[in-house]
Nucleic acid binder design. Sequence first.
DNA 1: GGACACATGTAATCGGTTACATGATTAC
DNA 2: GTAATCATGTAACCGATTACATGTGTCC
Lengths: 185, 185
Amino acid sequence: MSVRSLCLAILSFGDATGYEIRKESTEGRFSYFEDASFGSIYPALARLESEGLVTVREEPQAGKPARKVYSITEAGRTEFINSLCEPQAPDTFKSPFLLIALNAAQLPPEVIRRALERRKAQVQEDLRLLTDTHKDKECPHPGSGWTRDFGIACMSFTLAYLEEHGEALINIAEDAARPLAPAAE
Amino acid sequence: MSVRSLCLAILSFGDATGYEIRKESTEGRFSYFEDASFGSIYPALARLESEGLVTVREEPQAGKPARKVYSITEAGRTEFINSLCEPQAPDTFKSPFLLIALNAAQLPPEVIRRALERRKAQVQEDLRLLTDTHKDKECPHPGSGWTRDFGIACMSFTLAYLEEHGEALINIAEDAARPLAPAAE
DNA sequence: GGACACATGTAATCGGTTACATGATTAC
DNA sequence: GTAATCATGTAACCGATTACATGTGTCC
């Protein structure tokens, strides 16, 4: 999914500035689709505008540069919905944490412990973000409720698993660290 | 994580050719870390060799180009382990499926149904891959058992959730498709 | 007869990140 | 004082993909 489609997707949920789109895509709910930086978002928005898929209105502000608030047009909405009807790329999960887990026996226990804590904190943070979202008005997008519930379920499960089996992973590293004293004390 | 580190990671589990590394990274167990294409793998291996982190031996074959089998060196192993001790990038999950789910009310039910089936098939395939892996000898890498169990647990949960709540998502699309006949049949 | 798996490698291209440029306001 | 948030935009750079080039063996 390109930055272009990402902008369309976010704008289909409401007006936004480039700055806000970046935030949503790196932290907010839309981080599950793609994350992008300013250097790609601003050019993408300019292009979308020249194609008539979005419109801009400038809101001057004292001190700061004028906010450029983008709105999706009917043409933009159509293009977005049509793009969703075409076959999508498969979901992907990339996990530096699992690479550490895979090599637990070759790493110091402290590294494993830190990686585990970090991963748990990350899941907790994602979970918190999702749980807080339910204050949104749910009229225009009933799909967001389903999506949120799915995310909460999967992450709660992941967190519980890490909490229950994390110690076992640390043990692997510890057992490998002193292979000469097998089962003592 | 760069293609360079990916090659090191895969080679730390055993010798491989560029062709095999690509396969492992796009289909195999290593697809959870990074996937890469020939155009990036071959140059990366050449560079690793010039740096002394891997060695090559050529195995001539009749008809086909000679297989160039790469092995990791001690220096390569050290570099790999050290890189794992440094703070890693956070895990990411990118889901075109969830984007479709989010917009369920705006899409034809048929599209939702297809996306759900596709996602379920994908999880089943990943699950199958993971379950088949247990024939590996487990002496040198006890971490692979933990990692596999973790993957199996999360995916089984995901699959069960999709099977249980998939119908609800389709209903969202169906209800939105005929908003004038609320509950009648 | 055609598609696919095996097997390596290069060149053109491209999408996106990082760093730079600018600057007020607010919180610690 | 100094860091963070808000706010836009450009230019250099870079890693990686795509397409190309080459060729055999095997399955359907």
